[in-house]
Design a protein around this nucleic acid. Structure first.
Length: 434
DNA sequence: ATTCATGATTGTTC
DNA sequence: GAACAATCATGAAT
């Protein structure tokens, strides 16, 4: 402390040796000691420096009082000028001017992630991109809407916490910055602080706070990741399809028992009807085929049930179609109104024909008139008759795919049955036990 | 608690 | 890449 005071004293002594200083200011004449030598000045300088050096050791009130005293000290402008000069000479004021930090890649990564997860950025209808993506990944159906909303609720919670904390940090940062700026401005009266320096200090504060923010972002990301992984793990959580959906799928399956391989369009149609995804339809058919094949006997009752149901539906459809054929002009296409096609299950039957008999489907499509519908329905009825015939066994149309399916289905292949032409519906009584 | 049913996943085959 | 086969994991019934 004494050393410092001495140094300062000597600096003061040198600088104050009569030459003009910053701002064209000249030293004021020594108060009441006109004509005295440098000893009096030195005394003053020594005194003022001593006060400055010891100010930090004092209590706040004492320091405050001393500060006021220093501000009013007659030597203060001179000392200020000297300090400015020294600072300029030593280049202290320029230091740190180069600090324009490039964007932190880590921070950018976190920001991007939070944005992608829907935590940062604008609120998207209470949900998030991630929630939607996860919903799609897990089927995105009404069946898992519970988990979906659960996930969304938790994500919203995280989002809220994140934003609250972020706001808090920002507020704290601003408050602290303002405080420091005020302090520096205040101090700039007694020691030389350029606006640039204040700016630099603000930058330092912001960097400090942004590092805290980064920690917040990091932990938020972790929380989202944990939530996400938990949610995705729950994908395996099986929810049974609705009874209606199972009904629709079973109807299609048993009415296409000969070739239970829905086309892509049929799958989409079924998916729409059942409010499930196409892949779920594929899964269902995959499971159904294999389970049916493994234990036909077990499914016999179910098959009979759906065969009967299909027959009734087809008959109904045919009746309505016949009625329509009488009511409508034969040349009037029933475009738009869907008519009998929209009858319960008639769509399945229609699709059935599409996959089983391209001709009849094409006919219906091209003709699109009532007569063709009636023909189609007749075809359907004949088909369903086949299913009814199969009450004691399994009716299957043969096709390249079907033969493969049947090979697995029927423990004792009937041999010649596999050679049956695909165009002709053929009832084959299975010799499997029922 | 156990068993069965069923949707989903995974590895393999064609 | 679709389908198969085996398996997992869960829901529902008992």
């Amino acid at each position: 402390m004494d050393d410092q005071a001495r140094i300062m004293q000597s600096i003061g002594g040198v600088s104050l040796a009569g030459h003009s200083v910053q701002g064209g200011m000249t030293l004021p004449p020594p108060h009441g000691h006109d004509g005295t030598d440098g000893d009096g000045r030195k005394q003053d300088i020594g005194d003022i420096l001593h006060q400055i050096m010891t100010i930090t050791d004092q209590s706040l009130d004492e320091a405050q009082a001393k500060k006021h005293g220093l501000n009013c000290h007659r030597m203060k402008p001179a000392l200020f000028s000297v300090l400015c000069e020294i600072k300029e000479k030593t280049g202290l004021s320029i230091r740190g001017a180069q600090e324009e930090d490039p964007p932190d890649p880590q921070l950018m990564r976190l920001d991007n992630m939070l944005l992608a997860e829907g935590v940062a950025g604008p609120e998207k209808g209470g949900g998030s991109a991630a929630a939607a993506a996860a919903a799609v990944a897990s089927g995105g159906t009404a069946d898992n809407s519970i988990e979906h909303s659960d996930y969304r609720a938790k994500l919203t919670q995280i989002r809220q916490i994140y934003h609250t904390e972020l706001e808090k940090y920002e507020q704290a940062c601003n408050e602290f910055t303002t405080h420091v700026m005020n302090l520096l401005r205040e101090q700039s009266r007694t020691r030389p602080i350029s606006p640039k320096e204040i700016e630099r200090m603000v930058g330092i504060i912001h960097r400090k706070f942004s590092s805290i923010q980064m920690q917040l972002k990091q932990s938020t990301c972790e929380a989202v990741m944990i939530l996400r992984s938990r949610f995705l793990d729950a994908r395996r959580k099986r929810r049974n399809f609705s009874k209606q959906a199972t009904e629709i799928l079973n109807e299609y399956f048993y009415s296409h028992l000969s070739n239970p391989y829905p086309s892509e369009e049929a799958k989409e149609e079924l998916a729409k009807k059942c409010s499930i995804t196409v892949s779920q339809v594929s899964n269902w058919f995959g499971n159904k085929r294999i389970r049916y094949k493994k234990n036909i006997g077990k499914f016999q009752e179910e098959a009979n049930l759906y065969a009967a149901k299909t027959a009734v539906n087809a008959a109904q459809a045919a009746a309505v179609a016949a009625q329509n054929s009488q009511a409508n002009s034969p040349t009037t296409p029933n475009s738009g109104s869907s008519g009998s096609y929209n009858l319960p299950n008639s769509g399945d039957m229609f699709l059935s024909m599409q996959s089983l008999n391209g001709d009849s489907y094409q006919g219906a499509q091209v003709g699109a008139n009532v007569q063709s519908q009636v023909d189609t329905m007749r075809h359907v009825i004949s088909q369903t008759a086949g299913y009814n015939d199969a009450l004691g066994g399994n009716t299957m149309y043969i096709s390249h795919k079907v033969s493969h399916f049947r090979a697995g289905c029927q423990p004792v292949p009937t041999g010649s049955a596999d050679l049956m032409p695909t165009e002709e519906p053929e009832s084959v009584h299975s010799d499997t036990s029922n």
